[in-house]
């Protein structure tokens, strides 16, 4: 097969072909805005964050904490049984020192996005950012604590926790 094929299909273009308009092209920007509703489980989770508390739910059948809080257990496929309050401390499960943002744009000062295992959850991690101190000194297993926004500025969002600092 590989020997038989003389020319493999496809015509590569260079960046110059576009910049110098050697080929025709057209552009389109979607004019769409989305509005998503948090629902029952996350609704409770965000209400907790607004009060400065991290809350999860618990499935009495598999004895698991679900975090972020959810309305049903995907393992047992049943509704959850109760809300549980967790600590606002945890340990770093994994992290990155990131020089890229959402659309792969480059960041001058790196962020330290991490998965943080929340104390009291049985090892369940949430996604957040670590700040304060040298990014290159962050380690897996490091203890961290939430730094909350002032009460009046919280709006029931994941960003009500400003960041996590090493302790």
């Amino acid at each position: 097969m590989n020997e038989k094929v003389k020319v493999w299909p496809g015509t590569p273009l260079s960046e110059k072909d576009i910049i110098e308009k050697r080929v025709l092209f057209t552009e389109w920007e979607p004019n769409l805005k989305y509005a998503w509703d948090a629902g029952v489980g996350y609704g409770g989770y965000f209400a907790g964050l607004k009060e400065g508390r991290i809350v999860g739910t618990e499935c009495a059948k598999c004895r698991r904490v679900l975090l972020p809080a959810r309305a049903f257990c995907e393992w047992c496929f049943r509704t959850v049984d109760r809300w549980v309050q967790l600590n606002d401390t945890g340990i770093v499960n994994t992290f990155s020192v990131a020089y890229t943002g959402t659309a792969a744009e480059r960041l001058k000062d790196p962020l330290v996005p991490a998965l943080i295992e929340i104390d009291g959850s049985g090892g369940v991690a949430i996604m957040h950012l670590i700040r304060g101190g040298d990014p290159w000194k962050v380690k897996i297993g490091m203890k961290v604590k939430a730094v909350w926004k002032p009460k009046g500025k919280r709006e029931g969002s994941i960003n009500d926790i400003e960041y996590w600092k090493p302790v």
Binding site: F25, W28, P30, Y34, W36, D37, S157
Partner: peptide, 15 residues
């Protein structure tokens, strides 16, 4: 209270 968002991309199509 919905969360708002957009998809931060645009299309460029060769003919």
């Amino acid at each position: 209270k919905p969360w708002h968002g957009q998809i931060p991309v645009y299309g460029q199509y060769t003919y």
